[in-house]
Amino acid sequence: MGILKSGIMGPIRNKTGPSVGRMHRSINVLTGAYRASTKPPTTSQLDAQGKFGLLSGFLTNIDDLIKVGFKQFSKGKDPVNVASAYNYDHAFLVDETGFTLNYPELMYSRGYILPAESPAMLALPGQIEFNWLPQRQSMYCQYTDMATFLVYNPAKGYSVKKALATDRYAQGYMLDLREDFVGDTVHCYMSFASKDGKLQGNSTYLGQLKCV
Rank of each mutant, 00 (worst) to 15 (best):
F52G: 03
L199I: 12
A91M: 08
K195H: 14
I12G: 00
L177G: 06
S26Y: 02
T60Y: 11
A147F: 04
I62P: 01
S109F: 00
G10C: 07
S56Y: 01
L206Q: 01
L101H: 06
P40G: 09
Y173P: 09
F70N: 04
I12V: 14
F92S: 05
F58K: 01
Y189S: 01
M9P: 00
G32S: 10
L106D: 02
Y140F: 14
M174E: 12
F92Y: 14
P41Y: 06
G111S: 06
L150Y: 00
S203T: 03
T100F: 04
A48M: 11
K156R: 14
P79R: 04
Y112H: 10
Q208W: 02
L114N: 08
Q171T: 12
M1V: 11
A165I: 08
G201H: 04
I62F: 09
A48R: 12
Q208E: 13
G2D: 09
Y189K: 06
F181G: 01
K15E: 07
A83V: 07
I113Q: 01
G172D: 02
M107H: 08
I66H: 02
T144Y: 07
A170L: 10
N61Y: 09
P115A: 10
M9F: 11
N153A: 08
N28D: 14
A116I: 07
L114P: 00
R110T: 07
Y88F: 15
A85N: 13
